[in-house]
Design a protein around this nucleic acid. Structure first.
Lengths: 188, 188, 188, 188
DNA sequence: TATGAATGAGGTTTCATTCAT
DNA sequence: AATGAATGAAACCTCATTCAT
């Protein structure tokens, strides 16, 4: 019967946090996040129990964002190479389009604020890709290697690729291709 | 602010910092570092002007450590593949032998405490490898790509490899090989 | 700020406050009181202007409760000793039956939340005993002493008595007698 | 070799706390205590781990003060009545001379900040009176009653007495006598 | 009127850095 | 140079109170 909790405000805080994290690090005051989000200092805690809680929720949200971007228009019936190509392209596109989100994700990922539960939930998002992951695993050199290794390699290589794309945006697409080819060879 | 007498204390602080960073993050109090190093609270600032200063010096020191480990017994006259092989093996050996150092390096690398100057100095260490880097650049797919991209790819792949080795130490050597083969294919 | 409709809610808040004060002290949040009373956060302030206001009203209410308990069946025509005896017994009975109320009263009494007006109103309740107080004052050693001193002595001794009764409930009635005899001797 | 911790500062903080507690209650900010003590905000925590810690130490200190005042010139060889008389007089004198200390003690005693350990330590101070307590217990009506009851009665009556003395200082000594006589009769 | 979200002042405690010894 | 007490600026979070619904 009272004013309902506002999804917009929650979103505003999350977005403000993304920006602040990139620009001032995880140790930036909650007050700065609240201010940028346009809410009162204390309202932060109406939407997130603690600062840590915000970090965890934000991390998941960002991961979901990216997963959604990658799943969009996923070519279900294409060859494994083309599917991988799509994932690679969509992933790098996302990172180029939302550089703040990507950098915040990295900051959060290496911090000790993210709980094992949150990390598990983030990994679980990969299940959305269904068969793709399974097929990729059975491909070439990944066959005899733990899944996480495969994931890490892909992640690591695409990180490097994105880094190159960001630093040299004029040749972004070229770097994207090069990166993909390197990755594809790596896992062949 | 005269030159402090004891190099041992400086080293003790650096080592303590490495441990503390891994166990409690970059936001751990300087006092905790001093305590672990066995020096007084205030002595920290006799050896390092600020906390940030310590971080930067430590980062460089760690990078130097690793560079030295890699350069040790470098096969000057071997084939490029064997040289690369040596670098790969020495790098992963170092990481396995000094897990604290590696993790601290990662923490520091992603933080915003490390200045561009420090990062530049760290990259400059690669020059110690002289011709090796040059030859690697001219090899295969790396020919048309910025050096940093090559470095990133190597770094990224070896990170992933080390991660796998650490998580599954029984098959460490196998993961090391697999990682190297993947890398070599990637840059071919 | 019109007269609120529900007396039940007011009573619920007062009762909840009594419990909360005993269990968590005067600094417990108003929200905790509201919650225990089963009303919303903000409704607290429909019934009481401020937290202090609640404390003052509660204090008076508790004093009234106790006064009522003591006046019940007061032996109007008995000897002074028997009347005193009745007051003593009824007072300790009340405290034993409503330990929360007694403890909340103590907490409130020593706090600086209770205004002089409230304290005066509480003292005024004694007037309900009419002649009894007058007669008591003229008795024995109290003759040459300010009334408040007499009241304090009685209060102090009965506090001590109740404390003993609460701590050792098996011998409660015995402690009650002993306390009364001590009191009676004290004022003789 | 560094600046030693200063007993004066500790004492200054304790004294400031006494004043602040009386004037603004236990919920007064630690900053206000530090300010009145003439030390920096943070120095408070060099001398006391937490606010609660201060409260507990202060409580004990005050109790010790009073115990010392009462033990001073205690007539070891006097009659029980004269010894009691001495205790009564010294106690009320102390309260009259240090009203702040007394009021702070009361505030602390009823608060839930004082731990059972501290309360126990405070009670243990009574042991300093050696035989006196034992003899008092064996006297008159206290014989068949728990010690704590005897203590409470004395405490309660002297509280009431002091209250009267404070409110009417011109007749302080008279109230003191009256109170003592009432007490003596009560325990006879 | 009842609700509970919104507000923002304020509190305790931490900690990088300085400074007396 | 070494020590550790002193400093005071923040930081996170709480909570009385207000206000939109």
């Amino acid at each position: 019967m009272a004013r309902p909790r506002s999804d917009e405000k929650r979103a505003a805080i999350l977005e403000a946090a993304t920006t602040i994290i990139v620009e001032r690090g995880l140790s930036a005051p909650t007050a700065s996040i609240a201010k940028l989000a346009g809410v009162a200092n204390g309202s932060f805690f109406t939407y997130f129990e603690t600062k840590s809680d915000l970090f965890n929720q934000l991390y998941l949200e960002l991961k979901k964002d990216m997963a959604a971007a990658i799943m969009k228009d996923f070519p279900v019936n294409a060859t494994l190479r083309d599917q991988t190509r799509h994932v690679w392209q969509a992933g790098t596109n996302f990172a180029m389009a939302s550089p703040h989100k990507r950098r915040a994700m990295v900051q959060l990922a290496v911090s000790d604020e993210i709980t094992p539960q949150t990390r598990a939930a983030a990994e679980a998002l990969a299940r959305g890709f269904g068969q793709f992951v399974t097929r990729l695993r059975e491909h070439g050199s990944l066959r005899n290697v733990p899944i996480t290794f495969a994931g890490s390699i892909m992640n690591a290589l695409s990180e490097a690729t994105i880094e190159a794309m960001v630093k040299d945006p004029d040749n972004a697409q070229k770097h994207c291709e090069t990166g993909f080819e390197a990755f594809w060879r790596a896992i062949s």
